[in-house]
Amino acid sequence: MTSFAKLRLLFSLATSAFAAVNAVSDVREARREKDRLALANAVLNILAVITGAALAVRSVRGGEEK
Rank of each mutant, 00 (worst) to 15 (best):
A5N: 12
L10R: 06
S3T: 14
A42N: 03
F18I: 12
A5S: 14
S25V: 08
A40N: 09
A54T: 06
G52K: 02
L9T: 14
L39H: 05
M1V: 12
L13T: 06
V27L: 05
T51V: 13
S16P: 03
V49K: 01
L37Q: 15
D35M: 04
L10A: 09
G63L: 11
A56D: 04
E33K: 07
N22C: 10
G52N: 09
R8Y: 01
A48Y: 02
A5C: 12
D26Q: 12
G62R: 04
R36W: 14
A38T: 03
T15V: 06
R8T: 06
I50K: 13
T2F: 14
N22D: 06
I50W: 08
L37I: 15
T15F: 00
G62C: 05
V21S: 02
S16D: 07
A38R: 03
N22I: 09
A19V: 01
A17D: 08
V21T: 07
L9K: 03
L13Y: 10
V43N: 08
A40F: 14
K6Y: 12
G62T: 04
R61C: 11
S12I: 00
G63S: 04
A5V: 11
L13F: 09
V21E: 03
I50M: 09
A5F: 03
T51K: 13
V49D: 02
L55N: 14
R36D: 15
L13H: 07
F4V: 15
V49N: 00
I46G: 02
L55W: 00
F4G: 06
R28M: 15
D35V: 00
K6R: 13
L47M: 10
A23V: 00
K34L: 09
E33L: 11
T2P: 08
A56T: 04
K6W: 13
I46P: 00
N45W: 05
R28H: 15
T15E: 01
S3P: 05
V27H: 00
K34Q: 13
V60K: 01
A20K: 04
L9I: 10
A56M: 04
G52T: 08
L39Y: 01
K66W: 10
F18R: 03
V21F: 07
L10V: 14
A14T: 12
V21H: 00
N45C: 07
V21Q: 01
A40M: 13
L9H: 08
A38D: 05
A42R: 02
D26T: 11
L13S: 07
G62P: 01
V21R: 03
V21K: 02
D26V: 11
R61Q: 11
V27I: 14
F4K: 15
S12E: 10
A17H: 09
A20Y: 05
V49L: 04
K66Y: 11
F4D: 15
G63T: 06
A53T: 08
L39E: 02
M1A: 15
M1F: 13
V43A: 02
V49A: 04
L44D: 10
F11D: 12
A19G: 00
F11S: 15
R36Q: 15
L7P: 01
